[in-house]
Amino acid sequence: MKIVIQTAAAFLAITAFSVILYTSKKHVPFCGLAGALGWFTYLILEPLGLGVVLRNFYAALAVAFLSHLFARMLKAPVTIFLATGILPMVPGAGMYQIAYQMLIGDYEQTSFYLIQTIQIAGVIALAVLVTDSFFRLFWKRNKPKQPT
């Protein structure tokens, strides 16, 4: 139940975010889908006992993969879906924790969250890299004339 509610929230949140980035109406639901799938992946991996960083990696991987598919389906730049779909993974909580822990003077926690935030940013970059390379290597069918 928790997973259903949070995935629905992710869909609405990312749909709303694509609107403030002025995404074209026909792309808006696809942005929401990418974001919802990413957060769904993050949530279903929780019981498996994976760490936060690794779960972020798989979630970003799912979002990036779906974004590339949508971009090729709709002949639109992949950034449109990627930048919005990846938002739930962007370490906003990390930024808050860094500021808050520093404020209350807990430097151990500060450096913990700092390192975690850097790691999460790193694995998101890695996921994007992996998917980009994958599609460049294996997407031969209907080869696009322009980068997507």
Binding site: T79, L82, A83, T84, I86, V90, V128, D132
Partner: peptide
């Protein structure tokens, strides 16, 4: 609440 301010576009484009 900070999510509307988070630089998502800049981060994605920086990576790519």
């Amino acid at each position: 609440s900070i999510m509307p301010l988070v630089p998502g576009v800049a981060i994605t484009n920086a990576i790519r």
